[in-house]
Simulated assay, not measured.
Amino acid sequence: MVNIKEILTAGMILFAVIDIVGSIPIIISLRAKSGHIQSGKASIVSCFIMIGFLFVGEEILNLIGIDVNSFAVAGAFIIFFMAIEMVLGINLYKEDDNPATTSIVPLAFPLIAGAGTMTSLLSLRAEFHVVNIIIAIVINIIFVYIVLKSSKKIEAVLGPSGISIIRKIFGVVLLAIAVKLFATNINQMVI
């Protein structure tokens, strides 16, 4: 049942969708707002969200009357506003009094385990064995944890001006992802 080819394919798809390397400027920004990020907590919560959604995601969405496309459009709005913050250098996301919550929202969900990841998981489930998808999720979460844990070192290497430049560039990329996610799913929404 365990198939290396399926694990590699599912892993690469999830890696591209999660795009944790492209999210480094957002992670640095969130850490600056909240003081610190609980890397382990964010990784574990993301892993549970993804595995949980793999098994019951479509049923939960159907139960509350939301189709996958509507879910993806909602995720597109969240990504859009995060991108606007990055590009324009403004604060739309209100800081919580409890910095620990930043590790969950918006980091674990929707940044790591967001609408794009969820819809990808549903697509992967139709093609691959569940055990291979779970292994691919765990491999990606280990990589996510390493990036989250290294964010201070990455910030030190880039410096303030490097972070600012990368933040604006990835803000535009994130904006494009949000627009694409919105455009792809708005046409397919059940009205």
Rank of each mutant, 00 (worst) to 15 (best):
A32F: 07
N91D: 10
A156D: 13
V138R: 04
V87G: 01
R31Q: 13
V105K: 05
S34T: 11
L88D: 11
H36Y: 14
K152Q: 15
K33L: 10
S161K: 10
P106E: 13
F128C: 12
M189D: 05
A83L: 06
A100R: 05
A42T: 02
G89H: 03
M189Q: 06
A76N: 12
M118R: 11
G22M: 03
I191V: 15
I141D: 06
S39V: 06
V157E: 07
I191A: 13
G52F: 07
M82N: 06
A115I: 01
I20F: 09
S23E: 06
I4C: 13
I137H: 03
L54H: 00
M118Q: 14
I169N: 09
R125S: 13
D67Y: 12
V56I: 14
P110V: 06
K168S: 09
L92I: 11
I135G: 13
V73E: 11
S29T: 08
V105S: 14
I142P: 04
A126G: 14
A115Q: 09
S34P: 03
I49L: 11
S29Q: 11
I37E: 08
I60R: 02
A156N: 13
I134Q: 02
G116V: 01
F128G: 03
F80Y: 02
L175I: 13
G35M: 02
S39D: 10
M189S: 01
I24L: 02
D97N: 15
C47H: 00
R167Y: 07
V45N: 07
N187L: 15
I177F: 08
D19N: 09
C47W: 07
L122G: 12
I66W: 08
N3F: 04
I177D: 02
F53W: 11
I154K: 05
N185V: 10
L174Y: 04
C47Y: 02
F170L: 01
I27M: 00
I13H: 04
S46I: 12
G52R: 01
I13T: 13
G11F: 02
A42L: 07
V172E: 00
M50L: 05
I64H: 04
K5V: 15
K94M: 11
A108Q: 01
R125T: 15
F81R: 02
I142E: 09
S120D: 05
F182N: 12
K153F: 05
F81L: 13
I104F: 09
V130C: 12
S161L: 03
A72Y: 11
M118D: 12
G11M: 10
P110C: 04
S43I: 09
R31P: 07
F48M: 14
S46C: 12
I134D: 05
T101K: 08
P110W: 08
V45P: 08
A16G: 08
G35S: 09
H36L: 13
H36A: 14
L63E: 03
M189R: 01
